[in-house]
């Protein structure tokens, strides 16, 4: 499947992706309603984060309304607005905070890759966001990046704590 990748070394933290996402998904320029969020790590670096579209999604396993499914052809994890009752169990089950309850829409919402044409990628000016086929090499890179991030981040945190 194709997934969105984010590169912290290219992200300037402009948050255009959040605006593009919220306009496309909610017809509103409101970053708090975006399905992608740019996290700033102590002004050291930024990283846009959205649903990982897990192969075996925690959210889908626990949904009591059967509202969350993995689309077979694309691998997109989707929430059915008709089936979701707003019980929020999925928000408790997702370990990464990537599915949230929308008070405006009264259902759980998450990135659904804009049905295969992610608006955030389209509007990313620096190329920090890309939409590409997930192969083993790419996954390996992603894991390496997350390890690196963890190291840097915990380094910063621990250094601060000692002061």
């Amino acid at each position: 499947m194709k997934i969105i990748t984010s590169k912290p070394d290219k992200c300037t933290g402009c948050r255009l992706c959040e605006l593009a996402c919220s306009l496309k998904n909610t017809r509103e320029f409101n970053p708090t309603r975006a399905r992608i969020q740019v996290i700033g790590f102590d002004e050291m670096f930024c990283l846009p984060v959205m649903c990982f579209h897990c192969e075996k999604p925690y959210c889908a396993e626990v949904c009591p309304a059967g509202a969350i499914t993995v689309e077979e052809a694309s691998g997109i994890v989707r929430v059915s607005k008709e089936k979701c009752v707003g019980c929020k169990i999925c928000t408790l089950a997702c370990p990464f905070g990537n599915i949230v309850f929308s008070t405006e829409e009264k259902v759980a919402v998450k990135c659904e890759l804009c049905d295969g044409e992610p608006e955030c990628v389209l509007f990313c000016a620096t190329g920090a966001l890309e939409f590409k086929e997930a192969d083993t090499a790419m996954i390996r890179k992603k894991i390496a990046l997350s390890e690196k991030l963890k190291e840097i981040y915990e380094g910063i945190k621990y250094a601060k704590w000692e002061i």
């Binding site: 969020q37 984060v49 991030l149 963890k150 981040y153 915990e154």
Partner: peptide, 13 residues
Amino acid sequence: LDLRELLPALAGS
């Protein structure tokens, strides 16, 4: 705390 800051710590879970 913006819990998103914890993301690196949550990796690998």
